[in-house]
Nucleic acid binder design. Structure first.
Length: 499
RNA sequence: GGGCCGUUAGCUCAGUUGGUUAGAGCAUCUGCCUUUUAAGCAGGGGGUCCCGGGUUCGAGUCCCGGACGGCUCACCA
């Protein structure tokens, strides 16, 4: 109520409570950028006229010193202090000052100088009111520690946390870099349907919605993959899309129901070419955005220096399965179903029964249990089982192994790519196998997409495709441990709803 | 959905084996202070101890149930 009372007093002093504009000559960042490097002597050497600014900002600190006051002004990005003296702004300005609170917006007109302690400051000649903050800001010293408010009321987080601000600026630069990277290499950015009759291109549960006029159920896409490959078939040899995917799965530090995916397709290329392109993309992004390929990750460091390590899924299981109780995992065990079952038993793979009949799923499960938690440095895991890769082409030398890779960084799956299956008959066969699995209760198995098979029958050139999780990439580039830290408005349980 | 942890002033947190009137710093209010910067000094106000039951002479503290949040496991990128 104090703040509302202060607002009333400001109005009584004759100040408009919601002025339409302030004739700013600079923002705080401009002042810091222009004079941040000038010491006191350099500033004094400039004529006063050249140091005059009309500077708006939000008040983030008030230090009263009797008949002088220091205000920390922020433009969200930088801070600079205003030095307001009673004899500088007069009785009117002083009366206004006495009714200002933390969070209010004001405009200061004055001269840039440095105080005797060397702090860059603006000596106020006048002070105008711009907007009132009626709610108290979080604790000035501890900041916003309530992680729920941080996510639910991101605007409050952004007001007080320069780190949060920086995180989202880095994220924006990542996306911008990705676009420039692909544009420069002749890729066409496209947008494909978010609402699909068949949610294809990945194994996940979709969200469902309904179109009234057509009276059809539609799915929010779980991936753009099948549409992008239709475009390659249609004659765009290089396409990419950066957009949201929606998966009706759990929420965790690495999962948000809607997340941003980069997918790109290169005709006439294979999985190896995509890996090389990916290394170039990530190392280049790190260098340009962060100025280094050595990224801090908690107490550790991740090196985005190319080339990244290549490791087959089986080799990974053997390498990280050495200390399994009951004896190390042996390469010969991974070649047969009985051997895999024995190995999985020793490794303590969960839900053994569910994957027991499928050697591909069993190997993937072994990999996830034993190897994935160790893959801190960027590692391309290659040679995925064909059974778990229904949209991928097999290796030319081995029909049981998909020409597929996944990139792991920071113990997370960051990217997934492969040489695309372009044989319509084989694709039809794989869809049928997926449908059969679905009938057996696997509700993440894919649906048969008849139109996609027809598209392939028109002839898709040899093509490699890949998806990269942009949110996770943003996590890596900002040293964020939770995906919620890199999504401005992550999905939260609505307030007041029970479980 | 399971497990673990948390919820005390506007904010960040203390609060002993269950025992007077629940505390501190910041914020807020009053006074002093014209180069401070977590400004300083003096004083004041401010509490549904998350909610509902229970045990007890007595509950912020113990027990049961619930709400909300975090972490984690499973599904998944």
């Amino acid at each position: 109520m104090n703040r509302r009372a202060a607002r009333e007093r400001i109005a009584a002093l004759g100040h408009p409570l919601h002025p339409n504009r302030f004739p700013a000559t600079h923002l705080v960042s401009d002042v810091v950028g222009r004079w941040g490097g000038s010491d006191s002597a350099a500033l004094e050497a400039e004529p006063e006229e050249a140091r005059r600014v009309a500077l708006p900002g939000r008040i983030l600190a008030i230090r009263k010193m009797g008949k002088a006051v220091f205000l920390d002004l922020s433009d969200g990005l930088k801070r600079v202090q205003a030095y307001v003296r009673k004899d500088g702004v007069g009785d009117g300005g002083w009366a206004l000052l006495e009714n200002l609170d933390l969070g209010d917006h004001v405009g200061v007109t004055g001269t840039v100088f440095r105080t005797r302690t060397g702090e860059l400051s603006v000596k106020a000649g006048s002070l105008v009111f711009l907007a009132k903050c009626l709610r108290p800001l979080p604790d000035k010293w501890h900041g916003l520690t309530d992680i729920e408010i941080k996510y639910r009321q991101r605007y409050v987080d952004l007001i007080v946390s320069e780190e949060t601000r920086r995180t989202f600026e880095v994220r924006a630069r990542v996306v911008s870099y990705v676009r420039r990277f692909f544009d420069a290499r002749g890729f066409l950015e496209v947008e494909t349907p978010m609402m699909q009759l068949i949610a294809g291109g990945a194994a996940a549960r979709p969200f469902i919605t309904h179109h009234n006029a057509l009276d059809v159920d539609l799915y929010l896409r779980i991936a753009p993959e099948l549409y992008l490959k239709r475009l390659v078939t249609g004659g765009f040899p290089k396409v990419y899309e950066i957009n949201r995917n929606f998966r009706n799965e759990g929420i965790s530090t690495q999962h948000n129901p809607e997340f941003t995916m980069l997918e790109f397709y290169t005709a006439y290329a294979d999985a190896r070419d995509q890996m090389a392109l990916t290394e170039e993309l990530l190392a280049g992004a790190a260098r340009e955005i962060l100025g280094t390929t050595q990224l801090p990750w908690g107490e550790e460091t991740i090196s985005f220096e190319a080339p990244f390590r290549r490791l087959s899924m089986k080799d990974a299981v053997v390498e990280y399965g050495r200390d399994v109780p009951g004896g190390p995992i042996r390469p010969d065990e991974l070649g047969s179903l009985p051997g895999l079952k024995v190995a999985a038993g020793r490794a303590g793979v969960k839900y053994l029964a569910r994957f027991g009949a499928d050697p591909g799923k069993l190997l993937a499960e072994l990999f996830e249990t034993l190897a994935e938690p160790h893959l801190l440095q960027p590692t391309f895991v290659v040679d995925y089982p064909a059974e778990i890769s229904p949209l991928a082409k097999a290796r030319p030398d081995d029909p049981k192994t998909a020409d597929r890779f996944e990139l792991f960084v920071g113990r997370m799956e960051l990217a997934n790519g492969f040489s695309e299956l372009n044989d319509p008959d084989e694709q039809a066969e794989k869809f049928r196998a997926q449908v059969a699995q679905r009938a057996k209760g696997d509700d993440e198995a894919m649906l048969y997409d008849e139109d996609y098979v027809e598209a392939l029958s028109y002839g898709m050139p040899p093509t490699a495709g890949e998806g990269v999780g942009i949110d996770r990439l943003a996590m890596l580039f900002t040293n964020s441990r939770s995906i919620r830290d890199v999504i401005l408005f992550p999905l939260m349980r609505p307030k007041g709803t029970g479980r």
